[in-house]
Computed example of a mutant assay.
Amino acid sequence: MSATAAAAAVPRFATVPEERSSARAAGASGAGHTEQSAGVFNKVLILCVGNICRSPTAEYLLRRQLAGRDVQVTSAGLGALVGHPVEGHAMELLQEHGIDASPHRARQLDAQMLREAELVLGMERRHLAAAARLAPEASGKLFLLGRWLEFDDVPDPYRQPRQAFEDVYGLIERGVDSWLRYL
């Protein structure tokens, strides 16, 4: 991939520091590319409401996909159930896929988190709108998890049967996979 093609692959409106985009362009051809190569985004924040179902699921799936890379992945909620672990069905699904999310504790989103993140992925358009109101300067780095796919919003499975969590897990997994080429 040429430097021009690498730059074109970056989501529109995203700001990419020059030194990282150059490193990405150099490594994208495969020559000298290692698991430790610098990506386009090194600090990813994932949003939902309670930070106990969707965003931690996406956080831990993305962490697994990026294992060995220097990318920090965190999550937070717009109305977080602060201090709570991952919801039971969501935790079961993660465990069934070999992921231990037991360290997770829900965190409340704040403007500083949005400023520090290089990429912010929300589950719903309203999450992105709320984040933009909280930190307008972060607007250019706010995107839907499903941006590259045929779905926009990832529905909230909270307090629904396990089947709803399974459906949402599948959407989140596809959404995470669709972002890997940019990280």
Rank of each mutant, 00 (worst) to 15 (best):
L144D: 09
G140I: 13
E137W: 02
A132I: 01
E137C: 06
A117L: 11
R147I: 00
A129V: 14
E92R: 09
G140E: 08
V82A: 15
M91Q: 14
E92M: 10
Q72D: 15
E124L: 13
F143G: 03
V73T: 09
R125C: 07
E124T: 06
G79K: 08
L62D: 06
H127R: 03
E87C: 03
Q108P: 12
E137H: 00
L94V: 10
R69L: 06
M113F: 12
E92V: 08
L66G: 02
M91D: 15
P85W: 02
R105P: 02
S102I: 03
Y60G: 06
H127P: 12
P85I: 05
R133P: 00
R105Q: 09
L78E: 01
H97S: 13
G146A: 08
P85T: 02
S75C: 13
G83S: 04
G68V: 09
G122C: 12
A131C: 13
G140H: 07
E87Y: 12
H97N: 15
E92G: 00
A106S: 14
A67G: 05
G79R: 10
M123H: 01
D110Y: 10
D70K: 10
A129R: 02
R126P: 02
V71N: 11
L128S: 09
Q108T: 07
G83V: 07
G122R: 01
A76F: 10
Y60V: 09
I99M: 10
G77W: 12
L109F: 07
L109Q: 05
Q65F: 03
A117E: 06
A90H: 07
G88D: 15
R64Y: 00
S75P: 14
A130D: 13
D100A: 02
Q112S: 14
D110S: 10
R126H: 14
Y60F: 15
L66K: 00
L93M: 09
A130P: 00
R125G: 15
E96I: 01
L134A: 06
R126K: 07
G98V: 09
G68K: 02
M91G: 03
E92C: 07
M123K: 01
R63W: 06
S102W: 12
L119V: 08
Q95M: 14
A132W: 01
